[in-house]
């Protein structure tokens, strides 16, 4: 009997969580608009601008009550936006291109990572001097074959004799146990964790080899841009302000994120925040503004993805994004 009651209580609890999660876009009692921003990973410095907007009350000042919902490795955030289950979600530029080639109407509106931190990480002792050498060396290569950057590497560089296995998503025990293990990761994250474990690693950025996709891109459904441009503008303004605040003073925001993501300690948060600066600041952000995206970059990306067979139909690069700088100017 007691077991049944516990199961019942657990069921009700799960139901409540599910129902609470369903509140996509409803007015809160305070008058602020309540909505969800779906992240594609745990609370980490890459989401600093979003958490800064929350911590510093910027969302609230824009009349928004935003729930920042953390995600996991398999979180299908682009589909959540495409099916309008959430109004805002974090995706990557290459995911937007793939999604649009399949008729999903999602659009990027703010790019936190201007330079793609996607990289291949190897043991330094192997002395592999380049991305080419790293993916062609024997041993084990952990890379998500279905991801656009991986397909691009396969088509333009080619894999060697290494056993190809899926990404360990931050799990470093394979790196620890196998001297000939190479794996994909974010230059802003895994190398720091590896060094903390005392492992000496080399990091080869895929962007330096030529495939440079915007990452940590805030995306919306095309319809939202048409139906509620004011909401998109307020969100963009809040995130832009959050970006500026976070770049000036990241520590208080890191403390809040650290409470939500106990896998990273305070020192790691600080190290990652430092490491991501060259990925967040670009010529574009200096001359135009935070999160900016250019047609040139999107054109290059869509071309590369078509040529390497990631997408089978060409995608109009201009349809993939709205430059946040333009949204803020917007009529």
């Amino acid at each position: 009997m007691k077991t049944i009651r516990i199961i019942g209580a657990a069921f009700v609890a799960v139901l409540m969580v599910v129902l609470a999660g369903c509140g996509g876009d409803t007015p809160a009692p305070s008058g602020a608009r309540k909505l969800t921003l779906q992240l594609n990973w745990k609370a980490e410095p890459e989401f600093g601008p979003f958490y800064a907007a929350e911590v510093n009350g910027t969302f609230r000042a824009e009349g928004l009550e935003v729930e920042l919902r953390q995600g996991g490795s398999g979180a299908p955030t682009s589909d959540l936006v495409a099916t309008k289950q959430v109004p805002f979600a974090v995706v990557s530029a290459d995911q937007i291109v793939v999604a649009r080639s399949m008729g999903k109407k999602i659009v990027g509106i703010f790019a936190v990572y201007q330079k793609d931190p996607m990289c291949i990480i190897t043991h330094k002792a192997r002395g592999l001097g380049s991305l080419d050498a790293a993916v062609k060396a024997p041993g084990t290569l952990a890379i998500e074959r279905g991801m656009p950057f991986a397909t691009w590497i396969e088509k333009t560089i080619g894999f060697g004799p290494a056993k190809i296995v899926p990404s360990p998503y931050g799990d470093l025990k394979y790196l620890q146990s196998d001297p000939n293990y190479a794996f994909q990761g974010f230059a802003t994250s895994e190398p720091i964790a590896a060094r903390k474990l005392g492992l000496d690693v080399d990091v080869f950025l895929v962007a330096d080899a030529g495939f440079d996709s915007y990452q940590t891109v805030l995306a919306v459904h095309e319809d939202l841009l048409k139906d509620d441009p004011e909401l998109v503008k307020r969100m963009t303004r809040a995130v832009t302000k959050g970006w500026e605040d976070y770049m000036k003073n990241p520590e208080p925001v890191n403390v809040v994120m650290g409470r939500m993501n106990p896998t990273m300690d305070a020192a790691t948060f600080t190290a990652v925040t430092q490491a991501q600066i060259p990925h967040v600041i670009s010529d574009g952000t200096r001359t135009r503004g935070p999160g900016t995206m250019s047609l040139e970059r999107w054109t290059q990306l869509t071309d590369q993805m078509l040529k390497s067979g990631v997408v089978r139909t060409s995608v109009d690069p201009a349809s993939c994004f709205r430059d946040p700088v333009e949204i803020l100017k917007g009529s």
Partner: peptide
Amino acid sequence: EFITGQGIGGAIGVAQQRQR
């Protein structure tokens, strides 16, 4: 296979990444 990337589990994992 989802972990090792081999077999049908691995193929499904790749298809998920490709949104297929």
